[in-house]
Write a protein that binds this DNA or RNA. Structure first.
Lengths: 341, 341
DNA sequence: ATGAAAGCGCTAACAC
DNA sequence: GTGTTAGCGCTTTCAT
C-alpha cells in the first residue's frame, strides 16, 4: 500500500525493524543464525514498507548475473526454421530457469556478427548459457572451444560435438531414424529414399546412421542415388520433389524418410504437382511431430522429439546445484504412425 | 590472445595507457572531451588486454538494468496458442532491442503466480517491458494500472485498453475483419458465420465490429445465431464444427470467418468429418497467415498481420531515444485470398 | 545473534 | 583534458 516513486531502501527497513542493515540482508537471504523474533520483525518491516531488494546491486555484490543466456541461431525468415522446435525448447528452459531462480536472457545471433559467446561471460551478462542450433562449422567450434577453455558453463541442445567433452542434451536420432525406416520396410517399402539435413548438424549424421542400419538389417543395399540433402526448409523439400518425381514414377523410389516435417511437407506438395500422393503413390515419414505434421493431409507419419524436456534438462544441468551430471544426456524419441505410411 | 581466467580490470587498462581509471571510462563511453591521442592509447590498451567492462557494475552504477522484459502469457501447451505469433513478435522485439543496445529478458507468466509486473521494475530487473497476450480481465487491468501509476514504461502488443492511455502497438483488426467478410460477400456468400475469440482480447471486439460493418454495408441482417466463440485453439475450432455442421448442410450458413487460423483449421477438420469441404461446401477464411494456413489443404484464405513489425515498433517506442511517439500505433493487415474462398 | 565496515567495478560530480 | 573521489545498494568478513 505504501507506494512511493523513490526506491525503498534497506536502510529504512533496518530502521523500522530496529536492526542493522546487515541483519536485514541476513534475514532476506536466509543466511547465518538469526533470532526468530528478529527475523519476524525484519520480515514484517520489509512487508510493511513494500521493500524489494535491488537485483542490480545484489548481482553486482555477488558477482553473479543471475541470468542464463539462450543463444538462438540466425534464421532468415524465422518461421522458415521450425518455430515449434524453438518454442518448445525455450519453454523447457524457461521452466527450469524459474525453478532455479534464474532469469532468461534471449540472445539472437546475427548473420554478420561473430559468435563471441565468451564475451557474454566476460561482461558478466550471463552465468551460464545454452546454445541452440549450433552447427559443426569452424567458427562455431572455435567459439565453443573458447568457452570450454575459459571454464564457462554452457550446454548444447540437439547437437553433439563428440570429440569434445561438451555438456550436451540430445535426442536419439539414430534410433529415431532407424525406427522410422524400419517401419517403412515393415510396411512393405523397399526402395526408401532419404532426404537428410545439412551435415553441419550432428543429427544428420545420426539419422544417416539409423537409415543405414535399418536398410542393412533388412538386407537392402544402400544406394547413394537415394540420398538427398535439403536445408530443413519447406522450400528445400519442395525442390527435392523435382529430383525424385521421375524416380518415384518408375519405381526406383517407393518411399521417403525426411529429416524433418517441413521438408517432408514441402516434398508432399512438390510431388503432388507431379500427380504423386503421399500414402498412396509413395510412403512418407517426417521428423519432429510439429504442429504442421498433424495438420497436413494426409496426416504425416513422423518421429516425435521431446524438445521441451530437452530444454528443461539442459537448463537443469547448468543451474541446478545438486545435479552435477556431466555426462551427455540422450533422450528417446518416438515413432508416430499416421496416414502417409 | 591475452587470456586469463581472472577478470581484467579497468585499473590495468588505466595503468597500461598511463591514464586514470576515469579517463578509461570516458573513452569507453564516449563521454566528455578527450584528446584524440589519449583516446587511441586507451583503446589500444583495452584491446591489448582484452578488456571488456563489467556490465553488472556498469548497470549498477548507472541504475539501469539495460534489459527490456518481454512478458509471455501462460499457455498450457505452448504450441496450442500460435507459436508463430509469438516467434514473430519476439524476433521483432529482438531486432529493436539489439539496435538500441538493450538485452531481452524473457518472462514466462505462470498460471498460479500473480501478475506482479511492477516488481520487475522495483527490483530493477528491467527498464521497460512489453506485455504480450494481455487480456482484459481484472487482474491484468490492475497490474497494468499499477505500472502506469508508478510511471514505469511499458507497451502492449496486439491488445488495447481504450479507456486507459497505455502505450500500444496493435493491428487494424476491425478493417481486417471487414475486408475478410466483404470478400466473402463479394464471393457470393450471404449467410456468413463468425467464429470469434474470447472477449478478453480487444481484437475480438474489433473483429466483431468489422464483421458487423461488412454485413450492414451489404444489407445483410445480423444474426446472433451465426456468431460463435472459441478460444483460439484448434480444438475449439474442431468443436465448433459440431455446432455448425447441420446449419451448413441446411444452408443456414454458407461461409465462416474465423478469428484465427488454428480455429479455422480445426473447424475444417471437424466439418470434414461431416462430409463438408471448405472452399466447396462452404467458404472459409482464417486470420494470422500462420504457417499452417499455407500448409493445409485446401489452402486457407486468411488475413496476414505484421507481427514482426508490431514487436519491433513496440520495442522502438520504449527504447529508442529519439522516438517519443506516445500515440497508439495501429498497423494495417492484409487479406490473402487462397483456396477456401 | 548482531553490528561495523570494507569492498564489488563502475559512473559522474567536482576540482584543477 | 584529465585526475580525484564519493557514491550506487548490496554481501560478507570480522568483531563483539
Amino acid at each position: 500500500m505504501n507506494r512511493r516513486l523513490s526506491t525503498i531502501s534497506r536502510k529504512e527497513v533496518a530502521k523500522l525493524a530496529g536492526v542493522s542493515e546487515a541483519t536485514v540482508s541476513r534475514v532476506l537471504n536466509n543466511v547465518g543464525p538469526i533470532k526468530e523474533e528478529t527475523r519476524l520483525r525484519v520480515l514484517e518491516a520489509a512487508r510493511e514498507l513494500g521493500y524489494v531488494p535491488n537485483a542490480l546491486a545484489q548481482r553486482f555484490a555477488r558477482r553473479k548475473s543471475g541470468n542464463v543466456g539462450v543463444i538462438l541461431p540466425f534464421v532468415p525468415k524465422v518461421h522458415l526454421f521450425s518455430t515449434y522446435y524453438f518454442a518448445e525448447i525455450l519453454s523447457g528452459i524457461g521452466e527450469a530457469a524459474k525453478a532455479c531462480n534464474y532469469d532468461l536472457l534471449l540472445i539472437f545471433r546475427e548473420p554478420d556478427s561473430p559468435r563471441d559467446y565468451a564475451k557474454l561471460f566476460r561482461t558478466q551478462k550471463v552465468d551460464a548459457c545454452i546454445v541452440l542450433g549450433a552447427q559443426n562449422v569452424a567458427e562455431e567450434r572455435a567459439a565453443l572451444a573458447e568457452l570450454q577453455e575459459e571454464g564457462y558453463p554452457f550446454c548444447l541442445v540437439n547437437q553433439r560435438f563428440d570429440e569434445e567433452g561438451y555438456l550436451t542434451v540430445d535426442a536419439d536420432h539414430e534410433s529415431g531414424s532407424y525406427t522410422a525406416v524400419q517401419h517403412l520396410i515393415a510396411s512393405g517399402f523397399k526402395r526408401i529414399a532419404f532426404l537428410n539435413g545439412p551435415g553441419a548438424f550432428s543429427s544428420s549424421g545420426d539419422r544417416l546412421a539409423g537409415y543405414e542400419r535399418a536398410l542393412a538389417e533388412a538386407g537392402i543395399p544402400l544406394s547413394e542415388e537415394r540420398i538427398f540433402t535439403g536445408n530443413y526448409s519447406r522450400k528445400s523439400g519442395f525442390e527435392a520433389a523435382e529430383r525424385m518425381a521421375e524416380r518415384i514414377k518408375n519405381k526406383a523410389i517407393d518411399a521417403v524418410f525426411a529429416a524433418n516435417d517441413r521438408m517432408a511437407i514441402g516434398l508432399m506438395d512438390g510431388l503432388r504437382e507431379h500427380g504423386l500422393e503421399a500414402g498412396k503413390d509413395y510412403g512418407l515419414i517426417g521428423y519432429d511431430d510439429s504442429d504442421s505434421s498433424r495438420i497436413v493431409s494426409p496426416k504425416l507419419s513422423t518421429v516425435s522429439v521431446p524438445f521441451y524436456e530437452m530444454g528443461r534438462r539442459a537448463a537443469m544441468k547448468l543451474l541446478a546445484t545438486e545435479s552435477e551430471e556431466m555426462e551427455n544426456t540422450i533422450l528417446p524419441v518416438q515413432l508416430l504412425k499416421r496416414e502417409t505410411t
